[in-house]
Design a protein around this nucleic acid. Sequence first.
DNA 1: TGCAGTAGGTTCTTTTTAGGAACTCTTTAT
DNA 2: ATAAAGAGTTCCTAAAAAGAACCTACTGCA
Lengths: 147, 147
Amino acid sequence: MKWNDLNTESCPVARGLSVIGDRWTMLVIRECFLGIRRFDQMQERLGITRHVLADRLRKLEADGVLKRVAYQERPLRHEYLLTDSGKALYPILVTMIEWANAHVPAENGSSVTLISRETNDPIEPKLVDARTGNEITHRTVIAKTAG
Amino acid sequence: MKWNDLNTESCPVARGLSVIGDRWTMLVIRECFLGIRRFDQMQERLGITRHVLADRLRKLEADGVLKRVAYQERPLRHEYLLTDSGKALYPILVTMIEWANAHVPAENGSSVTLISRETNDPIEPKLVDARTGNEITHRTVIAKTAG
DNA sequence: TGCAGTAGGTTCTTTTTAGGAACTCTTTAT
DNA sequence: ATAAAGAGTTCCTAAAAAGAACCTACTGCA
């Protein structure tokens, strides 16, 4: 199977990966959540090559995750903003942060944690079923294929 | 920045991606959650090349996500099982499924949804703070760099 | 008028990674 | 003795990413 066939798959994991399953894409998204909007700024912060960054931004725009918005004419300049679909990636980012903090040790001690914007208290992400409030684990939930 | 420098970064997003930020890795993990344990079975189901699959399994084992366990001697054969660290990836898989179902249309209508193992009811994943029960969104939570 | 600077790319060239197919090795099954 | 299963490895080609330089409007300044 070629990589590009993934997004035609019925499995949502494969479809999701066809958009964000790439070495750089989630880092670009991270920058967007941190308020970074411009090409050069992203390029410098990430250390990504300009070529690859241009490519990823194009793809993310095509996939409806980012939108390219002019912030000035003459010369025409654009910035990249998260769409609603892009903002909806936040839970993925948060669960990744949580997993990595717990399971991938940083080589230098420092790290990044999540805190409440209101109270400054650290938060402890947990995935629950909105209907019942029960925690979601691989023991309580299964995937089901629907026609 | 080279890809391999990512895992030394203090950002947990980058560290997480150094393990799972790859075209195939989460699909291999998906197979594991579906109970697939053997090389040939994974290879056939995924359509991945044997070469790349062998490489990914080696890396996942090195990163402590999978463990390689002998299920027979003579000839010696191994199977791949999720470690605790690997099982802890389940919330990432679930949030990805949820996002893709909402934001990446399948080209053929069919899809996969999550249901409760007990009641068979569909579940609706939601990320909350375990301490307060409040939903986590990019408006309520920020990242903080520590030490 | 000309020169430097800024923003957002594109064009090379070289290295890495992936795809595709065939081959190996060990052991049981026919 | 021959074939098949299971888990890879080898080799060779094609696609992507790294790295650096270059291009195209402008603006501001001397």
